[in-house]
């Protein structure tokens, strides 16, 4: 294992960086898209609710690999060229946004409906009430589950290996074939993933306990 770190340290670090980069970009956009659809699910307008429902169900129920391969294979064939890294990140964003939408929606709905009624009665519009009263409370509620979503995102970013996205898993595959020491290589890769996910996972459990 040590020899793997010595001989392929650079590759592993690049992989770690790409994995982190892809996860952060995907988290950022998935949060925005997810929140938009979560709010759409709670507005009085029926058409908006249906659109949000369809979006969430579609991306929740199709494997991430299928979505990613679609952007890697089909879109470049007929529309526009997308690199492996980009198609992986887009796939990851869409897939995660559906889960984040569900999380945020449950957060919004866990805020007492009386709060909305009260703010409306006090003269705030629906959007003002959402923006200043409901969402701040909802977000505090959903921080631990969102943290868990981010951990999932980091783990899910390993689909980049299927589209040559130069992430940690891809580097692992390349190093394993080059060094012919597959087990030691994958142990190293596992260790690096744990460095990203394990501390976050323990922190989220601590937060959950604190908020409970």
């Amino acid at each position: 294992m040590i020899s793997i770190f010595q001989n392929y340290g650079g590759e592993l670090l690049t992989g770690l960086g790409q994995t982190l980069l892809c996860s952060i970009i995907a988290l950022f956009f998935a949060l925005i898209i997810g929140s938009i659809f979560a709010i759409m699910e709670t507005v009085p307008n029926k058409a908006a609710r249906i659109i949000a429902r369809v979006y969430i169900e579609v991306f929740r129920n199709i494997p991430l690999l299928v979505i990613t391969m679609f952007f890697y294979v089909v879109i470049p064939m007929y529309v526009v060229k997308i690199s492996g890294f980009a198609s992986g990140t887009i796939g990851l964003t869409l897939y995660s946004s559906a889960f984040i939408a569900e999380t945020v929606r449950s957060g919004i709905q866990s805020v007492d409906p009386g709060q909305m009624e009260g703010s409306r009665a006090n003269g705030l519009s629906f959007w003002q009430a959402m923006r200043y009263i409901i969402l701040p409370q909802a977000f505090r509620y959903v921080i631990p589950p969102l943290g868990n979503q981010f951990i999932n995102l980091v783990k899910n970013s390993s689909v980049l290996a299927f589209v040559a996205g130069f992430d940690l898993m891809y580097q692992g595959n390349v190093i394993a074939s080059d060094s012919l020491q597959s087990m030691s290589t994958y142990l190293c890769v596992g260790l690096l993933y744990l460095i990203l996910t394990l501390p976050l996972s323990y922190y989220m459990r601590y937060l959950e306990k604190k908020l409970a």
């Binding site: 951990i151 783990k155 899910n156 290996a161 898993m169 994958y186 744990l194 996910t197 996972s201 323990y202």
Partner: peptide, 11 residues
């Protein structure tokens, strides 16, 4: 459980 939960399935 914590170790395995926090690794990607591919690994």
């Amino acid at each position: 459980i914590d170790i395995i939960r926090n690794l990607p399935l591919i690994l």
